[in-house]
Design a binder for these strands. Structure first.
Lengths: 248, 248
DNA sequence: CGCAGACTTGAAAATACTCAATAAATGTGG
DNA sequence: CCACATTTATTGAGTATTTTCAAGTCTGCG
């Protein structure tokens, strides 16, 4: 649960009671193998889970066999909060690597929200952040060309990793192979490969045995118009304060 | 406020108290001219508003002058719920037509949430729906080609209109000109024009003096793989029920 | 009518895709 | 440790899609 607490803390202060209530929850630690389907789009998701180790993706599979990846989930990410709201999933969640997650029945989360209603505002904030990531994804797909898309995505992932873990490397190991990148970026694997090769020749990234490293972050950011502001919420929530004033 | 109440009702039952509390709010009716900027990305949004009449867009402007439209806002849509959470906007909101909105200071909304904490769950549900729309937008941009994108978007808008207003026409008037469609779909206006012309020739849509009408919805849906399930949340919230059982 | 703005059409260029062949890395069994 | 199979990545050539630029056309309107 610590990961979830840390995530919510980014959006505003947590009261002692709230933390206690969350720690009282009893998540089950589970592991999944690479490629495992954590959630099928056609099944109601009875659980909320949080990534502890490894990466996963949200993706949509089209009838013609194409795949579009909607988001990457990295350690610290919380998933399936929509279960709180009874909404169905319209997409799959699949392990990109071997995976460790903490899993909680949605009912336990609902009970938590009843006891600590103010937490809903923090969950809302988490959703708002997810939305910002999605919006950026839309812009990337709609208005950038291949090489920019690749760079922009690499920078985003890099920054997300460092937000969750300050000394994360700037290296993106085999987790993201060409096909995964292609399905993220709306390109073909071949064209991803070519774009990466071009960026490599230009010295913006360094490729070593398929492993990608951002060589020059500033240059990379300027070449693709990357601005990570959308990852850094500036105005944190002030829920406890409000509670005192407005309740009176 | 009725529009907001109607919107939230789609996600679950509202108690009498909740409705009363919302009706007690005192929104200000405002009008904006076509092209007006309702919200700049660099300003904190101190208001939550709800569209009464007319259309608007959320959009991002890129440094090189390109524009990507992130969402269309139609009557009944509620906007800037993120203000509740203190998050900054990373995009603009612009009136596509002359516009009438109901506007409320965010502080009044926050007070509402303090008095009726369970409402936060419904707002969360509204956000979840917004996210579903964004996800669909990602798939459209990433894995469909021009003609499919156009059709898919037209179908989505058509269905959204009918969800908010049962006898809305299947006609998309001048509101969506070629440039707007292009910025929505990540295409050039010229190519949108060509795609529309092709769909027109194929008899899927009917164009009359720039005004687009869906001629055959079923055929259109099958041609672009449209499935509007993501617009129809199947499992409504059960918050009042929970309140009784879990609180004990 | 004549103008302004938006739409359409054509031709050339850029971008990205497919297919197929090669190369590199990984894994397996001897 | 090496041969071999398997998977993944790269490269080349041809094709498809989309963009750009530029010249027309239509529409609404004073």
């Amino acid at each position: 649960m610590q990961a979830l607490i840390d995530r919510l803390k980014r959006f505003g202060p947590l009261s002692r009671d709230q933390i206690t209530a969350m720690e009282a929850m009893n998540p089950r630690r589970r592991t999944h193998e690479r490629g495992a389907v954590l959630r099928r789009s056609d099944e109601a998701s009875g659980h909320v889970f949080c990534l502890v180790e490894g990466w996963a993706i949200r993706c949509r599979l089209l009838p013609d066999g194409q795949r579009q990846i909607l988001a990457i989930l990295i350690p610290g990410d919380v998933c399936d909060l929509q279960a709180l709201v009874g909404a169905d999933q319209d997409h799959h969640i699949i392990a990109l690597t071997d995976l460790t997650v903490n899993e909680c029945p949605a009912s336990e989360f609902e009970a938590l929200l009843v006891k600590q209603p103010d937490l809903a505002r923090l969950f809302l904030a988490a959703k708002v952040e997810d939305e910002a990531l999605l919006r950026e994804h839309v812009v990337r797909l709609g208005r950038r060309k291949a090489r920019e898309r690749v760079l922009h995505l690499l920078l985003e992932i890099c920054e997300r990793q460092r937000l969750a873990d300050t000394d994360a490397p700037r290296r993106l190991a085999y987790t993201l192979n060409r096909e995964t990148l292609a399905d993220l970026l709306g390109l073909s694997p071949v064209h991803v490969s070519r774009s990466l090769a071009a960026l490599n020749r230009a010295g913006v990234i360094a490729i070593d045995r398929g492993c990608i490293e951002l060589a020059d972050i500033d240059q990379a950011a300027s070449q693709c118009g990357y601005d990570g502001a959308y990852l850094r919420p500036r105005a944190p929530l002030q829920s406890p304060q409000l509670q005192n004033t407005a309740q009176a």
